[in-house]
Amino acid sequence: MPIGRRAALALPSLLLPWRARPAAAQDAFPARPITIVSGYAPGGVTDVTSRAVADRLSRELGQPCVVENRVGAATAVANNAVAQARPDGYTLLMGTSTLAINPALQPNLAPKDPMRELAPVGMVFRTAFVLHVHPGLGVGSTAELIAWAKARPGQLNFSSSGTGAVNHLALALFAQRAGIEVTHVPYRGGAPALLDLRAGRVQAMFSAVLEALPSLRDGGTRGLAISSAGREALLPELPPVADVLPGFDAVFWQGLFAPASTPAPVLARLGTALAAATDDATLRARMAEQGVAITTGDAAALARLLAAETALWGGLIRQAGIRAE
């Protein structure tokens, strides 16, 4: 039976690739639930923040935003899953600092070029580290710690949660900028590294704020400074490392990404919703209690951050000869 004139006219549009179809479908975005992929295990600060932001995004978009944890290969499993996903806005990534670190530290991992394979949507958060020491070291400031290390090259044992972790790179940057030689002692996670710092088996460490707080409060360790350029709300008494080493700024960050080639209208809709979500005062206050500074920043700001951090950490990793464990 011959098809009718109206059906015949409609048929070509049905055969077009989805990207080439009229904008009507994009204008209706989102029409179904959105999956937000995270490379971190449930329960940690990164996961808690992802879920809090996803909940707020759900209200803005009128569709459920569900966090899916895909752990493995230094977050590369999650990162690559989204880079290879259909670019329609329904599969997103809560990307982190590892996107800037992995290309230099583990160049065999995909995506090999996150700046080309992912499309930034907007900033989510930044969280600083505390530079703290064992009280028995006898130093009370960043300047005193640097002087101690300069007088005893290689004798300052600095722990971290693992080779290539942001707190390890923070100490490598600290040593480079301060012109000191330290001994890096990597652990499998922040908790055992902190336990040995409290026990005096190592002398210094950069720890996540929330992780360090109990030890700082009970005197198990002594806080010297904060790794971000500005002060930390939960530890306002600690000055930035940048007061001694100008320009020092080492933080863990998280931003929302989509697959490359996601249509501009879809990215814009997601960006507007994320900006409203991260501007929510209740969300900001709740996350501040976790040592997390929710950050409002558009796609351009996230792209600049990723480019700057890729240059910073990539250069440091190559210069210091840092290799993955």
Score class of each variant (00 low, 15 high):
residue 102 N to P: 12
residue 170 A to G: 13
residue 57 L to D: 00
residue 92 L to V: 01
residue 123 M to Q: 09
residue 177 R to T: 12
residue 102 N to E: 10
residue 105 L to F: 14
residue 130 V to F: 12
residue 4 G to V: 07
residue 228 S to V: 04
residue 196 D to G: 03
residue 122 G to Q: 03
residue 148 W to L: 01
residue 250 A to Y: 00
residue 258 A to I: 04
residue 264 A to Y: 05
residue 18 W to F: 12
residue 219 G to H: 09
residue 241 V to C: 08
residue 58 S to R: 04
residue 112 K to S: 13
residue 323 R to W: 02
residue 284 R to T: 09
residue 51 R to G: 00
residue 230 G to Q: 13
residue 56 R to T: 00
residue 27 D to R: 15
residue 4 G to K: 10
residue 60 E to R: 08
residue 223 G to T: 05
residue 4 G to W: 11
residue 33 P to M: 07
residue 292 V to Y: 09
residue 240 P to N: 12
residue 127 T to N: 11
residue 271 G to M: 05
residue 302 L to C: 06
residue 30 P to N: 03
residue 147 A to N: 06
residue 1 M to N: 11
residue 13 S to W: 13
residue 155 Q to R: 15
residue 106 Q to A: 15
residue 239 P to Y: 09
residue 258 A to P: 04
residue 280 D to H: 11
residue 245 L to Y: 10
residue 2 P to W: 13
residue 106 Q to H: 11
residue 143 A to W: 03
residue 297 G to H: 10
residue 259 P to Q: 04
residue 81 A to G: 07
residue 175 A to W: 03
residue 171 L to I: 13
residue 214 P to E: 07
residue 4 G to Y: 10
residue 114 P to D: 07
residue 61 L to W: 06
residue 223 G to D: 03
residue 278 T to L: 09
residue 304 R to A: 14
residue 238 L to C: 12
residue 192 P to R: 06
residue 138 G to R: 03
residue 308 A to C: 08
residue 70 R to Q: 13
residue 81 A to K: 01
residue 88 D to M: 06
residue 58 S to G: 15
residue 266 V to C: 08
residue 222 R to E: 11
residue 182 V to D: 01
residue 137 L to C: 09
residue 133 V to T: 12
residue 171 L to E: 07
residue 39 G to V: 09
residue 1 M to T: 12
residue 270 L to W: 06
residue 10 A to W: 09
residue 86 R to M: 07
